[in-house]
Design a protein around this nucleic acid. Structure first.
Length: 153
DNA sequence: GCCAACGTTGGC
DNA sequence: GCCAACGTTGGC
């Protein structure tokens, strides 16, 4: 089982939006990066756990724990002309982009901020989100990193 | 296959 | 709003 970190801009989709969703479950559409698509296609399994991270906001940080409830399947928004994530080059018989379903397990008792994570750089120096220039919207992390971060809560 | 230009991300 | 970093595009 693999651990992950999912970024989302709370103005677009926040942890509270997920909490309000039917069954606290949503499809994670909109991934348009090949590396992330390959993570979803090749590695991500049902039951994997992930942190829900708020980015591009006043207080960036980890706000909750989610789980993968459905493995990769075609992202329908790539075929929707009206959608911002429409991809004219992707054909229905060979879909380019995939998504998974995720479910909210729980909100953290408090947000573990990016600033706080940086203060633990010694233990988290391999954490991809702390590395300069990292822009992947979904990144893997080790069980040691997972447990260490949860211990901060 | 190279690489400059361009678009996007995301912290600040 | 700025800008560094990085992925993608497209001309050659």
């Amino acid at each position: 089982m693999q651990y992950w970190l999912f970024k989302s801009e709370p103005e677009t989709f926040s942890i509270d939006d997920l909490a309000k969703a039917t069954g606290k479950t949503t499809c994670w559409d909109g991934v348009r990066n090949y590396q992330v698509r390959n993570f979803m296609r090749d590695v991500m399994k049902r039951g994997d756990l992930a942190f829900f991270y708020h980015s591009s906001c006043a207080v960036p940080g980890i706000t909750g724990v989610i789980s993968i409830t459905r493995t990769a399947y075609p992202d329908h928004t790539q075929f929707d002309h009206e959608h911002v994530h429409y991809d004219a080059d992707s054909k229905p018989d060979t879909p380019r982009w995939l998504m998974v379903d995720v479910k909210l397990e729980r909100k953290l008792k408090r947000i573990i901020t990016l600033d706080e994570l940086r203060q633990h750089e010694h233990q988290l120096k391999e954490l991809l989100i702390l590395k300069r220039g990292n822009r992947l919207s979904v990144t893997p992390l080790s069980s040691d990193e997972w447990n260490y971060i949860l211990s901060l809560e």
